[in-house]
Design a protein around this nucleic acid. Structure first.
Length: 569
DNA sequence: GCCGTTTTCGGCCCGACTGTTTTCAGTCG
């Protein structure tokens, strides 16, 4: 079934190509305008008929027909024609940050550059700066963006990697008796550079193990060897590695390919490494590997580097945060700002999932692109929350509460986005940076610390603003920021969106040492977004976060007590 | 191409930032 985001992306690229090919400016605007509204549509577009589609703002008779065409055929005839008349390299250039359709049009039609490689050369030899509208700084930023792009190709975010790995696993199961996902996916890395599978047959083959794989597995014969197949799956750019393992070796191989090198080579008191111990004959489980090595079991997520060896000395695996230990959801959006579902829908679904509270934190007034809340809207939302809180508890049962929050923009000077009397009307405040992301480290630190020192700040939202594989985020001094949070009793968010996973899990231990609590926040813009907390939990466990230091593992009563005490200071 | 009417066609749009400009165009969230 065609998803809403697929329809949006199809119309978006069509609009871009139309602009590239000199279509009427207002016709193009109609496309982007329609995209703007259908992106907000909460139902399934694929299920709507012509009449229902034209009810959507920005969608007229023509656009409704286009959407139906995408739903039935998977594409647009118009788009196919545009694509046929555009070099592939030009389309690739859309991925470069900082240049848009207009500049790409100049590059292609006036300068004659139709691929990223030629563009890079023109920037490196400085010739691009001679073109009107381009200068030295633009050249520099294009080069930086290309370098970033190159460093990201062939990598996947954990959500995509996990999904693809499961598809491949199912496919491989047709050919092998046993197929296990190993490597980075099993370790729950936030970015995955290669997919690794271990396979074995019921009996050993004489003539090669991978001969029967179908065409969806594209082998690179130069990189492969008799026991290791290397290549790609369909047109995915990420590297794929399949290792054939004899049945009796499976445990040992699964163990060493699930951990990273630093984890395997750390020595115990007897001078043995885990790598060596795992080879011992007769071991039946990974638990036994650690037992024989002389320490408690370490979960696969934590087999990155060697911090887990120290962690396990003072903590237990049962102390690690889990989905089941979460009691509420703290950072969520509704239709009051840029969310797809109403306050009531968000609350009802949260209650259905068994949580005790929902923190609504819509965007604040300066975030106009996201329909941030003007003060009157804030008051209106608070009134609705109070009504809903009565309604949702009317039938008795487990108490449930919507908490009045806001995701306040951190303004350029580090202040929050409302006057004090409005800030005081919230139960809690998530403070995040959304604008002016181009900052030097000192400037970013100063801006963040000022926000952290604001007595109304409860949680620091996505501390670096990074978007994995697409935006680096502004540079910060992690220790300085975490220390400031410790000094001011501010909680740090682990934004659980697979695009962010920010705070980076590598800083969880430092935060815990300083006594800073962390909150696993989905930043949900729709009901299903709550499930992103699974990614947040995965990286939180990877970094060794314990339930007792997880903010949204507090019960409703403890959360209310905390927020009341915090407000009273 | 869509919308909202001045119902048959004219106007359409969000603001901050950046870089390349000598007063503005392009990009982005």
């Amino acid at each position: 079934m065609v998803t809403n985001s697929y329809i949006v992306e199809t119309l978006e690229i069509t609009a871009k190509l139309m602009e590239l090919h000199d279509a009427d400016e207002f016709r193009i605007r109609a496309y982007t305008n329609a995209v703007f509204y259908i992106d907000k549509y909460t139902g399934d577009l694929a299920t709507l008929d012509f009449g229902q589609l034209t009810q959507i703002q920005g969608v007229g008779k023509m656009m409704a027909g286009k959407i139906l065409e995408i739903v039935s055929s998977g594409t647009l005839k118009e788009l196919q024609e545009l694509l046929a008349n555009t070099p592939e390299g030009v389309i690739d250039m859309f991925k470069i940050k900082g240049i848009g359709v207009k500049k790409i049009k100049v590059l292609w039609k006036e300068v004659g550059i139709d691929n990223i490689n030629d563009l890079q050369i023109a920037c490196e030899n400085g010739s691009l700066a001679n073109t009107k509208g381009f200068g030295g700084k633009t050249q520099e930023s294009i080069l930086q963006s290309i370098a970033f792009l190159n460093s990201q190709t062939g990598k996947l975010r954990m959500d995509k990697a996990q999904a693809l790995a499961e598809v491949i696993q199912e496919d491989l199961k047709k050919y092998f008796a046993r197929v296990e996902i190993s490597g980075e996916v099993r370790r729950k890395n936030e970015i995955v550079e290669s997919l690794l599978f271990l396979v074995s047959n019921a009996d050993t083959h004489a003539g090669g193990f991978f001969g029967g794989l179908p065409e969806s597995f594209v082998e690179d014969p130069k990189a492969s060897s008799p026991f290791t197949w290397r290549g790609r799956y369909l047109d995915n750019k990420i590297g794929l590695e399949i290792k054939w393992v004899a049945t009796y070796q499976f445990l040992h191989k699964q163990f060493i390919y699930s951990a990273d090198a630093n984890h395997l080579k750390r020595k115990n008191e007897k001078g043995q490494t885990l790598l060596k111990v795992s080879k011992t004959d007769g071991l039946a489980s990974e638990e036994e590997v650690y037992e024989k090595y002389g320490i408690p079991y370490i979960i696969p997520e934590m087999r990155e580097g060697d911090f887990a060896f120290d962690w396990i000395q003072t903590r237990k695996n049962e102390d690690l945060v889990s989905w089941e230990s979460l009691k509420g959801i703290m950072h969520n959006h509704s239709t009051y700002s840029d969310g797809r579902h109403s306050l009531e829908q968000m609350a009802t679904y949260c209650q259905e999932l068994g949580f005790e509270y929902l923190g609504i934190a819509d965007h604040s007034q300066s975030a106009q692109y996201a329909s941030g809340l003007l003060i009157t809207k804030v008051q209106q939302q608070h009134a609705e929350i109070e009504q809903l809180n009565k309604k949702l508890n009317a039938s008795g049962g487990k108490p449930f509460k919507i908490l009045k929050g806001i995701e306040s923009d951190i303004l350029g000077d580090g202040s929050l986005d409302y006057p004090d009397e409005v800030l005081a009307s919230f139960d809690y405040i998530v403070a995040s940076i959304h604008s002016n992301l181009n900052m030097t480290e000192p400037r970013a630190n100063e801006r963040l610390v000022r926000a952290i020192e604001n007595p109304y700040t409860t949680i620091l939202g996505h501390p670096t603003g990074r978007l994995l594989l697409s935006r680096q985020g502004y540079p910060i001094d992690y220790k300085l920021i975490i220390d400031a949070c410790a000094a001011n009793g501010v909680i740090i968010e682990i934004n659980a969106s697979p695009y962010r996973l920010d705070l980076d899990w590598r800083w969880i231990q430092y935060a815990l040492e300083k006594g800073v609590m962390l909150s696993i926040n989905p930043d949900a813009h729709e009901m299903e977004g709550y499930h992103d907390m699974h990614y947040g939990v995965a990286v939180a466990r990877k970094g060794g976060l314990t339930t007792d230091m997880t903010f949204n593992a507090l019960s409703l009563a403890d959360m209310e007590a905390y927020l009341a005490k915090r407000k009273g200071r």
